[in-house]
Simulated scan of single mutants.
Amino acid sequence: MDLNELLTRSAPPVTTRTPNLDRELRDLAAAAEQAARPRRRRLRVGIVGAVVVGVLGVGAASATGLVPAPGWVPWTSSSGKSCRMQLDVVPALDKHGNVINGEPLPGHFTQAEQQEALDEARAFLASYDYASIDRPAAIRAWKAAEAKVRASEPPGERQPILRGADMEQMAMSRVVWRDLKAHLTAHGINWRLVVSGESWRCE
């Protein structure tokens, strides 16, 4: 089992990396770098599609809705960095029921079901109490999962270990995606109908 499979079990599906996604990410990185220059401050920017670390690493995003819509959630890293994170979801299906994000879904879903999943997921994220996350526990869980996966992989195939604010943010967002999946399931909504995306900044 690799890190991708382990994290996928606890989060909504991830976006497959494609040449178009690579191009969008390069453009996004260039735009972000240009936007940060006038501020003359070191700015750490990371964008990922639903716990895609290990597949795309820090700097990835879902193909649709590249930058999530809701407001930024402020938090402070253990080292004292001022950070913000932004979590959102995009629809897995288009209005015709065709997959546009994530992986193929079993069965047929209507546009109304897709919209219900999207609305419920976004309402959940908007009302989520991010301050309630037990960060030390989230970090321990992340490190344990990462260590277990790395131990099962050949040294040359291991993903780089996330550290500092990047690791803390991924650990916290992993908790949010887990809770979102449980919330949708409890409401009788297929969580695979939404694909998660997140971004974060630390200054």
Score class of each variant (00 low, 15 high):
residue 146 E to A: 04
residue 83 C to P: 15
residue 81 K to L: 14
residue 85 M to L: 10
residue 78 S to C: 15
residue 99 V to Y: 02
residue 103 E to Q: 13
residue 109 F to K: 09
residue 126 A to P: 13
residue 163 R to M: 12
residue 85 M to N: 05
residue 123 A to W: 00
residue 101 N to I: 00
residue 96 H to N: 11
residue 85 M to Q: 05
residue 140 R to C: 00
residue 97 G to H: 11
residue 68 P to G: 10
residue 109 F to Q: 05
residue 154 P to F: 05
residue 77 S to D: 15
residue 177 W to V: 03
residue 80 G to P: 13
residue 145 A to I: 00
residue 172 M to S: 14
residue 174 R to G: 06
residue 154 P to M: 06
residue 98 N to I: 03
residue 170 M to I: 12
residue 106 P to Y: 05
residue 138 A to M: 06
residue 138 A to V: 07
residue 160 P to K: 02
residue 119 D to N: 04
residue 132 S to C: 06
residue 146 E to P: 08
residue 122 R to W: 00
residue 73 V to M: 09
residue 87 L to T: 13
residue 110 T to V: 01
residue 90 V to D: 03
residue 73 V to K: 07
residue 128 Y to S: 04
residue 92 A to S: 15
residue 150 R to M: 04
residue 174 R to S: 08
residue 149 V to F: 00
residue 124 F to A: 06
residue 148 K to F: 01
residue 150 R to G: 01
residue 148 K to G: 12
residue 118 L to N: 00
residue 131 A to I: 11
residue 155 P to C: 00
residue 175 V to L: 04
residue 95 K to A: 11
residue 92 A to D: 11
residue 119 D to M: 01
residue 82 S to H: 10
residue 108 H to C: 06
residue 111 Q to V: 06
residue 157 E to P: 08
residue 171 A to P: 14
residue 84 R to M: 14
residue 108 H to T: 12
residue 154 P to N: 14
residue 129 D to G: 06
